[in-house]
Simulated scan of single mutants.
Amino acid sequence: MSVHEAWGLLCRMFVRGAPVLRATMSPRELAASSLLGSAIRPAAINHQNVLCPYCNLHQGEVFGDGCGGKICRCPECGSIPLGSQDVDALVLNEEWLRQKLRMALEINSRDGIDQVGQGIWRLGDSRSTPVILVRNLNDLLRNPGLLEGLRVRDGNLRVITPRPMGQTTHPFAQDIEWLVLEDRFAFYGGAISFIESSDKRSAVLPHETADVRYGPFAVDFRSVVLPGHGHVNLTEAQAAVFSALWSFKGEPMRAERIMAKAGLKSEKPIDVFKVKAKDKDKPGADLPLMSYRELVVTQRREGLYAMPCACL
């Protein structure tokens, strides 16, 4: 059993945010838990319903057996006696996790940990940059303006979250560094270490605000929220096209009028969203085009274009 598997278990327990019954853990998870030491601890659970210890498939209500013991009434197996091991549970010591993450990022010990929302903590400042720990990335994607209130003088942010299933692209504006819990940290010797990245994207790309003002768009139209992908950063030309379409408040318009409003020479709005051949292999290069196709309705025969979200 490797410490890498132990770290994976720890991350899954953080995502869960609740005790895990030993009876539901695989043999490898139980072995991994033995490596985590003080990172996990025994937990009290709701004893009204437990997983049937016989089939491990159904939840059953817990009753006394009249002799000082307890039974689980499984809808499939009937009354099954419960032993102490059947109600034992483990839970992540989340205070331990937050403190170890602070140490890994060399956060000044004078900075306290503040809970700023359900499952959201401000761990302190690392290199003058606020560090935010979030249990669920989707909570931030549903409320993109939340992070703006945590900035210091419009500075950058570092956000630690577990990676949701299927999430492969960077979900935030370019001035927010996403530290994927599973990938950017490691567990060894009872401590957590930070893994530096060679990704220089935040250093070379311009500041983009994550604040949403116009429907799914930022105030300057330089980023847009694409469901399932988070914030997508746009070029000036792409932002100009979206801004022009927004100004028509959902009314269908001919391409030449849209492009004139945007101040561009291209014939059609989609021209500025096409992925260049040299960028086709770059992760996320097709996201602006996906955003365009998601938001813009085209009437090809009439040559009209409209953005329905602008009339909401």
Rank of each mutant, 00 (worst) to 15 (best):
E251T: 15
E256W: 13
E148H: 12
Q299Y: 05
P19L: 10
G64C: 12
P308E: 03
S79K: 07
F273R: 06
N93D: 15
H231S: 08
Q238L: 03
V224D: 00
W246T: 01
R257D: 12
L264T: 07
C74R: 00
R163L: 03
S84Y: 12
L57R: 05
E177Y: 04
F217V: 13
C67W: 04
A306P: 06
Q85T: 04
A285G: 09
A262D: 04
Y305T: 01
Q299P: 00
L226P: 14
V87T: 15
A44H: 04
V15E: 11
M290S: 12
D65M: 09
W178Q: 09
S38T: 13
P227E: 03
I160T: 04
P269R: 05
F248P: 06
S79W: 06
L150K: 06
G119Y: 12
P81C: 08
G37A: 07
A31C: 02
L287F: 08
L289Y: 10
I132N: 02
L51C: 11
G68L: 07
H170Y: 11
S291G: 10
I195M: 15
N49E: 11
R22F: 15
K282S: 09
A43N: 09
Y54F: 14
S34T: 04
N46D: 14
G263E: 03
V275N: 01
R102F: 01
L181V: 08
A203E: 11
A260V: 01
V232I: 10
V232T: 09
N143R: 04
G230Y: 00
V225H: 03
L21M: 10
G250R: 05
V15F: 09
P164F: 09
G228F: 08
A210E: 10
N56G: 05
A240K: 04
G112T: 14
A277H: 07
L304H: 08
R98N: 08
Q174L: 12
R127E: 07
T298Q: 11
G17C: 07
G69H: 00
G83V: 01
V91Q: 15
E148R: 11
V134Q: 03
F187P: 14
F248I: 03
F242G: 02
E94W: 15
L9W: 03
F242H: 05
E294S: 09
F185L: 02
V180S: 06
D65E: 01
R12N: 06
Q48F: 00
S128E: 09
K249D: 01
G284D: 03
L141R: 02
A89H: 11
D183Q: 14
A262I: 08
L9A: 04
P19A: 13
S223D: 02
L146T: 06
A43D: 09
G228C: 06
R257M: 13
G117M: 03
F187M: 13
K70Y: 12
P269W: 10
L36S: 04
F187E: 14
L157T: 07
A32G: 08
V212E: 01
N108R: 07
R12T: 05
L234F: 08
I80A: 02
L21P: 02
